[in-house]
Simulated assay, not measured.
Amino acid sequence: MPRFAANLTMMFNEHAFPERFQAAAAAGFPAVEYLFPYDFPAGLIAEKLSAAGLKQALFNLPSGDWAKGERGLAALPERRQEFRQSVKQAIDYGRVIGTPLLHMMAGIASPDDLAAQTAYRDALAFAADAAGAEGIGLVIEPINGRDMPGYFLDDFDRAVEIITGLDRANLKLQFDIYHRQIMRGDVLAALEAMMPLIGHVQIASVPKRNEPGTGELDDFRVLRELDRLGYEGYVGCEYRPAGETTAGLDWRTRI
C-alpha cells in the first residue's frame, strides 16, 4: 500500500493550521504536505511535526501574491530577483523543517512566450542547483487549465522534456493524478512511462476533487499500479473533503 501524506492546506480545515499536524497523526497519516508554511516560523512547524511524530513530504516555494492570483514567479522574467529570493526563503524553511522535497510553481504566463520559456528554464536550473546543494529535491507539476487558467506548465510531455533537458539529479516530476486525468487521461500508461522521473504523486477524485474513489476514475486501481511499479515516495492527499475530514477517510481501507 502506498504511504499517504495528508495535505494540510485542504484537509483537517476543522482545525487551525498548527493543530492540523496532530489531527493528521491521530487519523493515522505518517506524513504531511501543504502549499506554504511561510505564515508561521519554521521552528514552530518543525516543533509541530516532531510532537506529532510526522514526516514532512513537501511544500511549495513562495508563489508571489496568492490572494491576487499569482501562482508562481519562475516564468516571469521581470520577477527574476524576487524569484531567487523566494528560493532562498524556501530552502531556509526546508533546512529547519527537514523537507526532502520542494515544489516550484511556474506562474501565469503563455507557454508559447519565448521570454517566459527562457525565464522558466533558468529559474528551474537555479532552484534545482540551490536545493541540491542542501540535499533537497525539487519537483515541478503540470496543472490543468480548468483549475488554474493560464498556468505556464500545463502539459506533462513538456514537463518531461524540460526535466530531461536540464539533467539535474535532484529534479523530478510531481505527478498529480487529478490533473493528469483532466488534462489528458491515460493515467496508467503515463505513470509507467514517466515513473523514472516521478519524485512525488498526488491524488484526488475527478471531477470534484473530493476523496479518492468518489469520481470517474478507479483511484484504487491507480494506487495498486503505483505499488506494482515500485513507487516508494509519498502519495499526497491533495483533495477537498466532501464533509468533515475524518468522516471521509474510510477510502484508505478499500485499496
Rank of each mutant, 00 (worst) to 15 (best):
Q56E: 14
G28T: 01
K48A: 11
E47R: 14
Q85A: 14
A52K: 06
T118G: 10
A75M: 04
I108E: 07
T99M: 03
T99C: 10
F40T: 07
M104K: 09
F40V: 04
P100Q: 09
I97M: 10
Q89N: 10
V87Q: 04
W66A: 12
R84H: 13
T118P: 00
G94K: 04
R95D: 09
D113S: 11
L58E: 13
A109G: 03
L76C: 09
A52V: 01
L54D: 05
G107T: 03
A90L: 04
E33P: 03
D112A: 14
T99F: 07
A74Q: 05
Y38R: 12
L35I: 11
K55D: 14
S50K: 15
G69V: 02
W66T: 09
W66D: 07
D112H: 11
V87A: 07
A115H: 11
S86G: 13
E33M: 04
A109T: 00
G72K: 06
L76P: 00
R121F: 00
G107W: 04
M105Q: 08
Q117R: 14
L76M: 07
R84E: 15
G53R: 06
G107S: 08
F36S: 15
R121T: 10
R84T: 02
P37V: 01
L44Q: 15
L76K: 13
F59Y: 10
A46R: 15
Q117T: 01
G43Y: 06
D122M: 01
I97H: 07
R84W: 01
S86I: 00
S63L: 13
Y93C: 09
E47I: 00
L54I: 02
Q56N: 14
